[in-house]
Design a binder for these strands. Structure first.
Lengths: 208, 208
DNA sequence: TGCCGTATCAGCCAAAAGGCTGAGAGACCA
DNA sequence: TGGTCTCTCAGCCTTTTGGCTGATACGGCA
């Protein structure tokens, strides 16, 4: 049986080599190429059609990981994308999954976990580190549970179309505080603008 | 039977006197006060409790008519507010009705129309000039019909949470054009910000 | 032929929103 | 007692939005 071909995408050489060495210990996994940026990843994928793309989200310059995943999805390539990153922020997890990632691994994951994630990915199984999975499930089950009471209150007014100033007046807090809450809400909903937050919140049913 | 007490609110003296003279011809209608601004209108209403407030929307300085109507509603006063204005823009009509206006008359309305509007208002009947009514019904029936095809297209992307730049790229037009379209959409939906536009559009069912 | 609606774009300016950092107070829990 | 979470606020700076004015172009309709 042919080995699973893998493309590594990470802007740090050390990480790439380390991962490559690690994966090299597995006879059924073969790293066929490396890329240091999202752009490079797209080109390499096009040319080599690896079975799995293991990608960091934070790329120093140019296209970031999320965008690269979206681009790959758009070309309806059949590669499975595994996110391999340092942090497990709520926002990144949601965005990566939305973009089409098959799995989400933390860099401190055990080697065996990484191997099985890659093997599972080619079979269409999605794998994620335990802490990541628990966060994601919590999100999916009830996205509002992860919002604090105050944040939920603010969100419910936000979707009425109020401005920051109006939100502040309504809740008897300063505009600065409103902005702080909003930043947290955006992070938790996995969006970047109030427009997207409203769209997301209203769509998640119940909030209308 | 006591005459219907009326407060006139308009920043133009000539309009007030003209209207006062006109209404003076009707024995069952009595103008008890006049105000030249939204603020003044609130004070006068408080003190005199007129049965009907006839108000222009465009006030030179300070609080505008829409805001004045909202304030009156908030104090849950029992006055009926009739909008008496020069223009019949879609935005103003919707906003005035939303704010709680009982009727919407154009300044070129026939005297008889004005009299009957005032008489109807005290009985809880809402009256509006024919062109106003037709616009409003069109809005309510299907708000999208009044949007041009291009505007509707833009709106459908807007509620996805895209920024102006992204909208431009997606539609192959400049950001300037996006802004122009947005301004028109806001006017037609009767909102002022993209956040409110999204909230409104999604709620009007069908757009989700 | 001239006007109107639609779609396109520009430039300028003010207001709103967002990113980032840092910080203090109170609650709760280990 | 010390850490963590939540809520609060500030300042600074950049980007995005929105308001306003004005302009060009095309197609239909009177």
């Amino acid at each position: 049986m042919n080995p699973i071909t893998v493309l590594l995408v990470d802007d740090h050489l050390v990480v790439r080599s380390g991962l490559k060495a690690l994966l090299g210990t597995q006879p059924d996994i073969q790293v066929v190429a490396e890329a240091a940026s999202g752009e490079e990843a797209l080109v390499q994928t096009e040319q080599l059609s690896p079975a799995v793309v293991v990608m960091d989200l934070a790329m120093g310059a140019g296209m970031d990981g999320i965008e690269a995943i979206k681009q790959l999805r758009r070309r309806d390539s059949r590669q499975a994308v595994l996110v391999f990153t340092t942090y497990d922020s709520d926002a990144d997890i949601v965005r990566a999954v939305d973009a089409g990632a098959m799995g989400y691994l933390l860099k401190d994951a055990a080697p065996e976990e990484i191997f099985s994630a890659i093997r599972g990915a080619v079979q269409g199984k999605s794998v994620m580190s335990a802490p990541v999975a628990s966060r994601l499930f919590q999100q999916l089950r009830n996205p509002d549970e992860i919002l604090t009471p105050r944040e939920a209150e603010l969100l419910s007014l936000l979707i009425e179309g109020l401005s920051n100033r109006e939100l502040g007046r309504r809740l008897f807090i300063s505009e600065a505080t409103v902005k702080t809450h909003l930043a947290h809400i955006y992070a938790k909903l996995g969006v970047e603008t109030r427009a997207a937050a409203i769209a997301t919140a209203i769509r998640r049913e119940g909030m209308r």
